[in-house]
């Protein structure tokens, strides 16, 4: 298998290099890819949507359908990870570790033993024993708000600089993942529950699709944001800019929730018990 694979791959590489002989030289301004559709986008994005970042305007306005179904793909991935891995049956673990907070003593409670209540005095810790991680916890606590504000900035400022819903959503999700790693998974799930996250994921997709349906209700085409001009009280060009922002927020929410769902399910193998 290894030899057959190698021969096939070398054959493929030879064919591709033969094909690459006909490619335009790297960086050629007259290459066919840059001559047909993209000049229209670059020259008309300001007059059509008043968004200077061409990537954002093409992503959310000119090719809005593409991005909408991309968001649906992300949503599907989150749902699939849930259905593949989630185990609801609460198996009693072999032994559990608890830490007595005032003294820092770690207790190991065997199967069948009396488990202390979650209170201010006892805290459950993962079975991979971790020492007192004061530095990590304090750093996480201080850095997470800034990460979240940066994520919101990235979503909101996608019109004028690199960024947008996908990046901002992923960064926001990463802040929750950092919380789950720095503290523990149970605490993260207590803060952002599974139902809430799934709801947010569906909400993001619904915001995107709902914007399109709203445009249809305003007697225009699906995802034609200029129909929202009456709603915002602006001219159609600015309305398209605002419509892109709404759509980006929807994308951001959906991507954030999907990333958190993927992490919850993968890190605990579906048990939502002990994380990374």
């Amino acid at each position: 298998m290894r030899i057959t694979g190698l021969i096939l791959i070398l054959l493929l590489g030879g064919l591709l290099i033969y094909g690459a002989l006909d490619f335009p030289i790297w960086g050629d301004p007259q290459s066919p890819a840059s001559n047909h559709l993209s000049p229209y986008y670059i020259e008309h994005t300001m007059t059509d949507t008043s968004v200077p970042n061409v990537v954002t305007s093409v992503l959310a306005d000119y090719r809005g359908y593409d991005t909408m179904f991309e968001t649906v793909v992300i949503f599907t991935a989150g749902i699939v990870s849930f259905f593949l891995l989630r185990i609801f049956k609460k198996a009693v673990p072999e032994s559990r570790l608890y830490r007595h907070i005032p003294t820092g003593v770690t207790l190991r409670i065997e199967k069948g033993g009396k488990v202390p209540d979650e209170s201010n005095h006892f805290e459950r810790i993962d079975s991979v024993w971790i020492p007192y991680d004061l530095v990590i916890r304090t750093t996480c606590r201080m850095i997470i708000p800034f990460i979240q504000i940066f994520a919101l900035y990235v979503i909101a400022h996608g019109h004028h600089s690199p960024g947008g819903g996908f990046q901002g959503g992923v960064i926001f999700g990463a802040s929750v993942v950092l919380f789950a790693i720095g503290f523990n998974l149970r605490q993260a799930i207590k803060q952002l529950g599974e139902k809430f996250v799934t709801f947010m994921c569906a909400l993001g997709v619904s915001i995107y699709a709902g914007t399109g349906i709203f445009c249809v209700l305003m007697k225009s085409k699906y995802l034609d944001y200029s129909a929202l001009a009456a709603l915002f009280g602006t001219d159609p060009v600015t309305a398209r800019s605002h419509g892109i922002l709404i759509v980006e927020i929807g994308v951001g929410i959906a991507v954030m929730a999907a990333m958190i769902m993927l992490y919850y399910n993968l890190a605990s193998a579906g048990k939502h018990d002990e994380g990374l």
């Binding site: 301004p29 890819a33 840059s34 559709l37 993209s38 000049p39 986008y41 670059i42 020259e43 994005t45 300001m46 007059t47 061409v54 990537v55 093409v58 992503l59 090719r63 593409d66 991005t67 991309e70 793909v73 992300i74 996908f166 992923v170 991507v255």
Partner: peptide, 22 residues
Amino acid sequence: TAQAINYINPLPHVLMLTAIVV
């Protein structure tokens, strides 16, 4: 009006941005 010759082709960027997330 912006001249298309002065800016990198944005269309492949858009396609690939979504491809990374997928």
